[in-house]
Amino acid sequence: MPDIDPLTTDWQDDEVAVMHHLRDWAVAFEELDRHLGVWMGMSTTDANALGQVLWAEQAGEPLSPARLARQIGMTSGATSVLVDRLETAGHVTRHRESTDRRRVTLRATAAARAANEAFLALAGREIAGALRESDPTELRAALRFLARMTTAATAANTRLAARRSGGSTTATAH
Rank of each mutant, 00 (worst) to 15 (best):
E15K: 00
A173N: 11
V83M: 09
V38C: 11
R96D: 10
D46Y: 11
A121S: 13
D3A: 02
G167Y: 00
A153K: 10
L143P: 05
D46L: 13
T170H: 06
T154H: 12
G77E: 07
L146Q: 05
H95E: 15
R163S: 05
D100Y: 07
A130Y: 01
R144W: 12
P2M: 00
G166Q: 04
R163P: 02
D5P: 05
H21I: 00
G73M: 13
R85L: 09
A89R: 14
L139Q: 01
H174W: 12
G60L: 10
R140K: 06
A152S: 14
T9V: 14
V16Q: 00
N157W: 06
H20W: 07
G167I: 00
L36D: 02
A69T: 00
A118I: 06
H35L: 09
A56P: 02
A156T: 06
E133R: 03
A28T: 10
N116M: 09
E126Y: 04
P136A: 01
R163A: 12
T154Y: 13
E117W: 04
Q12V: 02
G37M: 09
R94M: 10
R101Y: 15
T99M: 14
T9F: 04
E31S: 08
R148D: 05
G73S: 10
R103Y: 13
G41M: 07
V92F: 12
L139F: 01
N116Q: 07
L82I: 14
L32M: 12
L122V: 11
A123L: 07
G73V: 10
R70S: 14
V92K: 08
L63Q: 03
A114G: 08
T88G: 05
H91S: 11
R34F: 03
R159C: 08
R103K: 15
F145P: 01
M19Q: 09
R144N: 07
A173W: 05
P2K: 03
L7E: 07
A142H: 05
T75K: 12
T170Y: 06
